[in-house]
């Protein structure tokens, strides 16, 4: 197991190098550079040249790239043009909030998906099933920038239950502040989970071992929790891991909407200001999150299904 994990971690290195190379080149392909965003309309060629020199942008691109790689190996991700501070310190200060938001959104989506999907599956074809399916089909079509504003309008401005902005201080306050943003993201991914969980529960319920269990006199609650749900989890884990990228994409919009100082809002600002160093590190962190979740998914398979063997 540890050998497997070690190997998987090693395999991440070329992927991360690939991601950073592509991003390094992509940000420099977009017209406009840090000097454009810093100097605006008053950019004279003299001022632009000075900014370029200050940040090493006057060097040929291959030299910039090797300087970047050399620094990254030494753990130095450079200076931010906009914030005038080290890129890693800025990203570090924000990464936790984004991870919390992703985690909270994932948790909420599971908490919503489980009861509804199971209920729909057990009442297959009935009124409850139809209503649940219709409702989640509709929620799939709600864009998060709209849903976030509606949630703020009704639950924060009118009902004054949740705060409309900020990240909060301390565990409870943070949880309170992140509820609406996490719910906004969760709503976009829950329908996928409901759909996959519902169909796998239906499949498992029809299988022989459930009939056997029922005949052997297992109580319905025990049967559901220990046998049906455990066996329905595998497809759910797959759907979930595939959609982690989607969750991360959700944070970019939602953080902007709720004024949360996380990586998503940082990425948007940094693209506008052409803050190359930050764009490079944030995309790297996002890539790392996706890779780690994929690894955890594979490990979860082994735990959930003893037939799955971890070989590389």
């Amino acid at each position: 197991m540890s050998r497997y994990v070690g190997l998987r971690l090693l395999q991440m290195i070329p992927v991360l190098v690939g991601v950073s190379t592509v991003v390094f080149l992509l940000v420099r392909l977009i017209p406009g550079d840090p000097a454009t965003s810093m100097l605006g309309s008053r950019a004279t060629s003299e001022l632009v040249a000075r900014v370029h020199q200050q940040f090493g942008l006057d060097l040929p691109i291959w030299r910039q790239y090797f300087n970047y790689l050399g620094n990254v190996v030494r753990g130095n991700f450079g200076e931010s043009f906009f914030y005038q501070a080290s890129v890693s310190s800025i990203v570090q200060a924000r990464v936790l909030l984004t991870l919390e938001l992703i985690g909270y959104a994932a948790l909420l989506s599971l908490l919503i998906a489980f009861p509804f999907a199971t209920w729909a599956a057990l009442r297959r074809g009935g009124m409850a099933d139809r209503i649940i399916r219709l409702f989640f089909a509709a929620s799939l079509g709600m864009p998060s920038f709209w849903l976030g504003i509606m949630l703020t309008l009704y639950l924060s401005v009118r009902a004054q239950i949740f705060p409309s902005t900020g990240a909060g201080v301390g565990f409870q306050d943070r949880l309170w502040h992140l509820t609406l943003p996490a719910l906004t993201i969760a709503v976009s991914i829950t329908p996928l989970l409901v759909r996959s969980l519902r169909s796998s529960v239906i499949e498992v319920v029809a299988s022989d071992f459930v009939t056997t269990g029922r005949a052997a006199g297992l109580r319905p609650g025990q049967l559901l929790l220990s046998y049906i749900l455990r066996n329905s989890l595998l497809p759910l884990v797959t759907v979930f891991s595939i959609n982690v990228g989607w969750l991360i994409g959700g944070t970019v919009i939602v953080e902007q909407l709720f004024g949360l100082p996380g990586l998503g809002s940082l990425l948007i600002t940094s693209i506008t200001t052409r803050d190359y160093g930050i764009i490079q590190l944030v995309t790297l962190v996002f890539a790392l999150i996706v890779l780690m979740v994929n690894l955890l998914t594979d490990l979860a398979y082994a735990v959930l299904d003893p037939r799955v063997a971890l070989t590389s």
Binding site: F145, I149, T152, L153, S156, V157, Q160, P163, S164, T165, G166, Q256, L257, F258, G259, S265, I268, T269
Partner: peptide, 19 residues
């Protein structure tokens, strides 16, 4: 001074008293 990039969010913050 708080940074709130989205136009609609800024207005909701005024209405909720956050700004």
């Amino acid at each position: 001074f708080k940074v709130v990039a989205d136009d609609n969010s800024r207005i909701l913050q005024l209405q909720s008293g956050a700004a």
